[in-house]
Each structure stands twice: as C-alpha cells, then as structure tokens.
Amino acid sequence: MRAALISAPFLWLLALVAAPSLLLGWIAFGSAAEGVPPVAPPLAWQAGAPVWQGSLESFALLLEDPHYAGALLRSLLVAAGTAGLALLLGYPMAYAVAEARPRWRLPLLALVLAPVWTGLMPRLGAWIGLLRDEGWINGVLLRAGLIEAPLTLLFSDVALFAGMLHSYLPYAVLPLAIALARRDRGLEAAAADLGAAPGRVFLSVTLPLSLPAVAAAFLLVFIPAAGEFVIPELLGPPGDPLLGRVIWAEFFQSRDWPLAAALALVLLAVLALPIRAYQRLGRG
C-alpha cells in the first residue's frame, strides 16, 4: 500500500513528463520524410540489427538560422512582460483578498478565477470585438472626439498583452493570495510596535516574506506564457514570431516534425532553468 502511494507520483511523472520528452527526442533526432507519420526514425532495424540513421540537422538549423533564436528571445520577453504585469496587477488584488474577512475570501477568489470558467475562445472573441477598428473602444473615442481616425489596437502588442494578462492573471493571484492570507501577522504588529510606519512595515516585513510566493506566481505565469500560441495568433501582430507559433508552423505547415520537436526540447530546457533557480531560492 505504502509503496503504491509513493510510486504514484513517479508513475505520473513517467507517463506525462519522461515518456513525452523521450518521444520528442526520438523525433528530433530523426529526419523529415514523406510518409505516415512524416518522419524517419533515428534507429531502424535492418537485417535484425539496429542501424543508426539519425541526424543532428534539426539542432544545427536552430543554431544556423537566426529566425529561431529571435523567436525564443521574443517569446521569453513576452512571457516575462506578461508575468511582470500580472504581478503588478495581481499583488494588490491578492493583498485585498487576504485582508478581506475570512468569509469573503472564497467568493473574492472565485471572482478572480471567473474569467477562466468562460473559456478561452469567447474571451478572445470579446477582445476582438472591443479592439477592432469598428470596435467599441474606437467607437467611444471617436464619438467623444478624442481621436480622428480609429487607433490600430487589434493585431498589436496592446491586444496581445491584454489577452495574455486576462488569461494568466488568475495564476498569479492564487498563490499570492494564499501566501498572504497565511502570513504571520504578529511580525507586522511587532514592526508597528517598534515604530515603523505602515509603508515601512509593508516594504520591510510583508513584501520580503511574500517573495517565495511572488517567485512562484511569476513562474506560474511565465512558463505557460512562453509557449502560448493561440492568443498571439488571434490578437497579436501578424506574423509575430513567438516560439509557440513557430513550432506550430514547423509541425503543420512545413511538416518538419524533427525541427518542431527540437524546438520544443529547447523551450523545455530553457524553462527548466528558472525552475532550478526557484528551487535554489527555496533552499537558500
């Protein structure tokens, strides 16, 4: 029984993390071919013996063509921007939830999560309706005489970050709200007794104590945002080379599965770095 309980998470990791990663590696070291599936595996059986026919071409191409490094950089910047904005907006929201009376906390958290329940497509559709040239925002600004021609809001960074924040903000608020609600208020009272002003208490006691939660909130937004491709596709600048879209294009448009798999592995490796740093932070 005990062995079963302990092995459960490992089986989970094996099935959902290790096995897919191995499969990605298998495809990434293969080469694109015409067939079903459109990839020649790196190892083939010939006359009863395995023959290595894999290639490093996909990884070489990633280094060679600056398009891919550019896409990675831009994805990381967009993800960091989204996570940063989500913290700026999410921290006060989480603080308000934590300071509310206990019986209000759950309803308030439910309100924070409400956008997640509406589904991604209707939410993005609503943003398109708001932001397009003939949309509500331009309509109001034009009527009010504040602008003469409609602003280009849709298919821009404004729309991209609006959509990203709307989708990912709850992931930042949730860990912050829980950590802030559970904090030891005695420390703040002690600081106040020793003569610290409320601002000083917040900056010297509350904020430093919540830093692990801040880091967790940042990562919870940053990691999924780095691979996002639906929101940039529907709201962002046309052809904006974000890694999620580049992987999609290599997989579906070029049908170069090895290159798409190599890109996915690189993204996985790059995202493992901040997680590693977070573990260090937790220990130190």
Partner: peptide
Amino acid sequence: SPAEDRARSRLWSRFKAGR
C-alpha cells in the same frame, strides 16, 4: 520536393515576421 517545400515555408515565416 520536401526540402524545397520547407525552404518556401521558412521564407513564408520570415515574411510573416517582417524581416
């Protein structure tokens, strides 16, 4: 050929990205 096809689709990504 598959290689020519991939060359075209990479050209297309560069065009979409605008560089």
